[in-house]
Amino acid sequence: MTRRRLLTSLGPPIVFGLAFLGLWEAVVRGFDLKPYFLSAPSKIVEAIGDNVDNVWDATVVSGTNALVGLVIGTLLGVAVSFALMRFRVLDDLVTPLAVALNAIPIFVLVTVFNNMFAITSEVPRRLMVTIVVYFIVLVNVAKGLRQVQPTHLELLRSYAASPTAVLSKARIPNAVPYLFTALRIAAPAAVITAFVAEYFGGSQNGLGYGITSNSAGSKNAVAWAYVVGACTLGLVFFLIAVSLESYINTRRGLGPGGGTT
């Protein structure tokens, strides 16, 4: 992309964002809104400056939880989708369940996990993230392994290809874009789950805890500082996943949004 095109595509949203912040600031000052009701952006920036170490530490805690869950969930999801591919019976049992679980907010299970593990442990949160990511990856990768072009299967059969060869020449390469689509969905979900898990108790060190405790203490601007940290973390996860997906799809000649030819 040329510098000019970058400017024309990024320009408008940036201008809009700045205008929005300006309006927010003006409303808070103009109507003299109390800080416990709504903090002005300038106060939030100030709060970030004052608490930069705390916000950073909390970001590392929540970010690590999200990342650990994302990695383990992805590995598990990929492994199990291979097992489903291999054993059809398992597929019939597990897939409908996985699809159903993807449609409900299972992260509320974190309270149960909190009771199962030590109160200061990060395990329940990471476990929760893992489960959320696992089902997203499982459903998508299993689909990618299964939905191979019938022509490809007939062709490989005509070459007398072994089941292993069918897997390595057709099914696995076919599933790769599905994996990256799954990651694009799972990465923000991992971050959200990591925050929300903190709302349900456990150790007092993450971004989610920073938001709830400061809100409860009427330190609104500080709570907002943690919100900014949370947004940034979510964006970073999302951008990395989107870039990976669009890189893979471009190499495959698919549109940036995915799909098959």
Binding site: Q149, T151, H152, A170, V176, G253
Partner: peptide
């Protein structure tokens, strides 16, 4: 076949 059935990757 009717579809060329080439492997995209």
């Amino acid at each position: 076949f009717q579809q060329a059935g080439l492997f995209d990757w």
